[in-house]
């Protein structure tokens, strides 16, 4: 699963720490999600999308093989 968290963060000029605090997880978790290493739960994905005021499928997209 790929995501556009890094792009959306850049648009808002916020750090991983800011996003982590806003959605209630650690900075390492945001880093792992951003790099595509950790697939977040649907709840966390929705919280992240809500923070960016975007639909979930715009922030997270399925890849072939998912």
């Amino acid at each position: 699963m790929k995501n556009t968290i890094k792009v959306e963060r850049a648009k808002l000029s916020i750090t991983q720490t800011d996003l982590a605090k806003a959605v209630g997880v650690s900075k390492q978790t945001i880093h792992s999600v951003e790099t595509g290493r950790f697939i977040p739960s649907s709840v966390l994905a929705m919280k992240i999308a809500r923070y960016f005021k975007l639909p979930v499928e715009e922030v997270f997209q399925l890849e072939e093989g998912d």
Binding site: V25, S26, Q28, T29, F38, P40
Partner: peptide, 9 residues
């Protein structure tokens, strides 16, 4: 300290 879903996994 921050026991989120990644830590649980």
């Amino acid at each position: 300290k921050n026991d989120d879903e990644r830590v649980k996994a």
